[in-house]
Amino acid sequence: MTDSELRALMKSDLNAGAKELYQQYYRYVYAIVFRLLRDCGTQEDVEDCVADTFAEILSHADNIRGENLKAYIGRAAHNKALNYCRSLNRQEKYTTPLDDAPEPVGEDLESDAEKRELKEKLLAEIQNLGEPDSTILVQKFYFGRSMAEIAEAVGLTTHAAQVRCGRALKRLKKTLKDWR
């Protein structure tokens, strides 16, 4: 569905428009919110923030007339998540804005360029693992989900998902070791 069709649907039938909006953009919103809240919030905070974002977009659907929908949604998710993060960190009133926060430093000191290269290589090799292994690894090591949740999401038993995860990790380590 195009942006204009989606806008028209939200205007004519809010329920159907809400479902379609969620269907098209939940991954995008979840990704933005999760990236900002992963270190300061819980799973429930992420879900609450995602829900708040969609509710706000739907409440102000008229405001996005003419504007790029994805950009508007991205901005709304980003701002909501930042506010959530500030609220969760409210013990320290003058918190460092997240965009200005220093990059975490690993135990092994590496140059920025090497780190960036490694990151790109890692992402590419995760893709090369194929499905469902790449999804299992991302769900586990980026989204921090339990194996039971991952298994249910990809349609495997918990044991099977665990075994696939272990094997995928071994292959990934070997590939990256060979590359280095």
């Binding site: 939940y26 991954r27 995008y28 979840y30 990704a31 933005i32 999760f34 990236r35 991205g74 992402l123 893709q127 790449s134 999804t135 991302v138 769900q139 980026y142 989204f143 991952i150 999401a153 990809v154």
Partner: peptide, 11 residues
């Protein structure tokens, strides 16, 4: 992060 989620996020 958005690319990663769009490809691999499964709820």
């Amino acid at each position: 992060a958005a690319k990663l989620a769009e490809q691999h996020l499964v709820l």
